[in-house]
């Protein structure tokens, strides 16, 4: 009887040892098992990254005047770069340059010559 019980306990432990990691590999483990699943998870990159501090030293405050509003010099691939493409998705579009479309109908302009600009 004692031997049977020992075998049952051992097989249960073995099943748990093998089964829980396999279960954890399945998608969306339930909340109460998440800590256990995380222990055996072989994809730790899915865990949320927690930053201890965001006090980095990159030069983020290049445009001044009251608040930090949009320009940094880090090398990340955001829409703050200084290249000439318009790759900032989701932000306001850049205006059409002079000469490509007519000036806005704001009542200030006549219907004559298009704007002419010169920088010396």
């Amino acid at each position: 009887m004692k031997k049977t019980l020992t075998l049952l306990v051992a097989s249960t432990a073995l099943t748990a040892a093998i089964g829980v990691p396999a279960w954890s590999a399945m998608q969306a483990p339930s909340d109460f098992l998440r800590p256990v699943a995380a222990l055996f998870d072989d994809a730790p990159e899915t865990m949320p990254l927690v930053l201890a501090s965001d006090d980095d030293d990159d030069d983020d405050d290049r445009w001044r005047g009251g608040s930090r509003r949009g320009h940094d010099d880090d090398d990340d691939d955001d829409c703050d770069d200084d290249d000439d493409d318009d790759d900032c998705q989701g932000g306001a579009r850049n205006p059409a340059p002079a000469g490509t479309v007519a000036p806005p109908q704001n009542g200030l302009f006549g219907n004559g010559a298009p704007p002419q600009v010169q920088v010396n």
Binding site: A92, P95, A96, A98, P103, P104, P115, V119
Partner: peptide
Amino acid sequence: GDTTQVNGITG
């Protein structure tokens, strides 16, 4: 910040 205000008058 409406950019349509400066369409065609931006350099």
